[in-house]
């Protein structure tokens, strides 16, 4: 936690700088030949979607490590990544929906991509609820770690949904070096916003982890005081 406290400020500063550059590029990017200015929504939607998946991937890794090593720091990181991931997943769904209304003609469609992304949000919410519902923090940590690892089956489903099944959602625009479907001046804002969102996610994770850690310390102190009575 001391390490996290040290990197929080520099990380925050870097996030603000890159995010500022990203937003400048978003404003000055040309409109898309089909979508017009609505393409600017995707500069939030795509980075947020990447961060949703990345948060869950991180959660799966720390959950696995926690079950193996039983270090509390790993559980704190898991609790924090659930909160951060839920926020990004919500933004992904909401921004996609707002793009879909004028472009597709529908706020929502039950296609494979949208449905599996909704399941990811349900997973994040379920993990929060599960931790909340268990009194014993050790049991809560173990149970959420196990559920998080089981839920990881959703990740490949989300990622490959647009390739495996015919969906309303468009297929990925990047597929290695062979395919590059975003052309010209539309690309830089997407790349910079993606970097900005990764930094923002890291910053939020650091902040939330420190908050969770401090809360646990405080709660431990409170229990101790109640057990031993007041001085």
């Amino acid at each position: 936690m001391k390490f996290l406290a040290k990197i929080q400020w520099p990380l925050g500063l870097l996030t603000v700088l890159v995010l500022g550059a990203g937003l400048w590029l978003v404003i000055h990017a040309p409109a898309d030949y089909q979508q017009g200015d609505a393409v600017r929504i995707l500069y939030v939607h795509v980075p947020a979607a990447k961060m949703s998946l990345l948060s869950y991937l991180f959660l799966t890794v720390v959950s696995g490590l926690f079950l193996w090593r039983r270090t509390e720091t790993l559980d704190i990181l898991a609790e924090a990544s659930v909160a951060v991931g839920a926020a990004f997943t919500f933004i992904t769904l909401a921004s996609g929906s707002i793009w879909g209304k004028p472009m597709w003609g529908a706020w929502w469609a039950w296609d494979a991509r949208l449905t599996s992304m909704l399941v990811l949000l349900i997973l994040f919410m379920g993990l929060m609820a599960l931790r909340n519902a268990l009194d014993n923090p050790v049991k809560a940590a173990r149970a959420t770690a196990v559920l998080a690892i089981i839920g990881a089956v959703d990740l490949p489903i989300i990622h490959f949904s647009v390739v495996w099944w015919r969906t309303l959602h468009q297929p990925p625009s990047f597929a290695g070096a062979s395919k590059q479907a975003i052309t010209g001046d539309l690309l830089p804002p997407l790349l910079v916003m993606s970097v900005a969102f990764v930094l923002l996610g890291a910053y939020l994770l650091v902040l939330k982890s420190r908050e969770v850690s401090a809360r646990r310390q405080w709660e431990a102190l409170e229990t101790e005081r109640l057990e031993h009575g007041h001085e």
Binding site: P30, Q34, W104, L168, P171, A181, I182, T183, G184
Partner: peptide, 30 residues
């Protein structure tokens, strides 16, 4: 109900000509 399906291609207004051809190709592929 009618839903428009977008291809994965994003093309600035300036260079639409070749973009349109490319977008059509990838739509047919899906």
């Amino acid at each position: 109900t009618i839903l428009a399906k977008h291809s994965e291609d994003y093309v600035p207004v300036k260079m639409s000509e070749e973009g349109i051809a490319k977008a059509r190709e990838s739509m047919l592929k899906t």
